[in-house]
């Protein structure tokens, strides 16, 4: 059946296969809490000396809400749910005018609005399965100059897929007007494939369709060198030893003054990265399995060598 072969040859990892053959097989349930709870992720990253945005403080219950007054003097910060799903419930405040803060999308919020948002986070409005959650406030990233040519509002981030400790695919995620400053593809951000060897951007994808230019700025999205690329790859390889998940996505942001920081990890990374790279990930997964064999433990340096073998073949 030639019709069927087209899909087979395309090498696409689909949702069912990702869930059944990749995630269920390689991600052990007991390691999930370390990535699902961003506060635990932060703590673990700190213990291993991997840089992440500075945590100001966390709010576990309504009593802790009184701490929020501490930020009255702060101009910019981000409010996040610890267990938010799919980028929901994130509030990024980038400026302060009189008594009100300005969000990345341009809206003005008072202290009461922010407190209400935190209360909603605490009661589990944005969490996986609607369970009670905690909120935290952290350092607000300033976009690195390298991206200013093609960004609209918000902070772009770099998603790297790590399979059995080897970075296999990567994309730059750019917020759009539609996504409201957020870098999640299903909320309307665009994804741009990244060459794994050089760290240079390729073509992009917006709402599941191929694009070459940013819909808001009309800037060409390809040919951009991502700064600190080698460093990003090395950190991605290292996170595998910390979090022990067989298949996950690491989200990096590049701060203008602090350099690459890990924003969060995702144990169920989306599939659109394949669209952004205009290639299915299946051949890479298969080659990685072939090169790694059944070997359970392999040092970061050895895995870096495997990475080079794979990326030379595909990029």
């Amino acid at each position: 059946m030639s019709w069927f072969n087209i899909f087979k040859q395309s090498g696409i990892l689909n949702m069912n296969r990702r869930n059944a053959n990749v995630i269920l097989r390689h991600n052990l349930r007991r390691f999930y809490p370390f990535v699902d709870d961003k506060l635990r992720t932060k703590k673990l990253l700190e213990e291993h000396g991997i840089p992440a945005p500075k945590l100001y403080f966390s709010i576990a219950d309504n009593y802790d809400l009184k701490h929020i007054r501490q930020v009255e003097e702060l101009k910019e910060f981000a409010v996040k749910p610890a267990r938010g799903a799919a980028g929901r419930g994130i509030l990024v405040l980038v400026d302060k005018e009189n008594d009100k803060w300005k969000t990345a999308a341009g809206a003005l919020l008072s202290m009461e609005d922010i407190i209400y948002h935190v209360e909603n986070i605490l009661s589990g409005l944005y969490s996986l399965g609607g369970v009670d959650d905690s909120a935290f406030l952290e350092y607000c990233i300033r976009t690195h100059n390298a991206f200013s040519r093609i960004t609209y509002h918000g902070v772009p981030d770099i998603r790297v897929i790590v399979y059995r400790g080897i970075p296999l695919m990567s994309m730059l995620r750019l917020p759009t007007k539609k996504s409201g400053g957020k870098a999640n593809l299903h909320q309307g951000a665009i994804g741009v494939g990244v060459d794994m060897v050089e760290g240079v951007t390729l073509g992009g994808v917006y709402r599941d369709r191929f694009i070459d230019t940013h819909p808001d700025t009309n800037a060409v999205v390809s040919g951009l060198q991502i700064p600190f690329w080698r460093h990003i790859l090395e950190v991605a390889v290292k996170t595998f030893d910390v979090f022990k998940l067989g298949y996950f996505g690491v989200d990096f942001v590049i701060d203008a003054s602090l350099g690459p920081l890990i924003l969060e990890l995702n144990a169920r990374p989306g599939l659109s990265i394949q669209l952004a790279n205009r290639n299915g990930i299946m051949p890479r997964l298969k080659l990685a399995d072939k090169l790694l064999g059944d070997k359970k433990i392999m040092g970061p340096e050895q895995r870096m060598e495997v990475f080079h073998t794979i990326s030379k073949k595909f990029d």
Binding site: I6, F7, S10, I12, N14, L202, G203, V205, D208, R209, F210, D212, S222, Q274, L275, R278, N279, G280
Partner: peptide, 12 residues
């Protein structure tokens, strides 16, 4: 994945 299936690997 329509674009990926029919326009795979094409780079602009």
């Amino acid at each position: 994945f329509k674009d990926l299936i029919f326009k795979r690997g094409k780079r602009s």
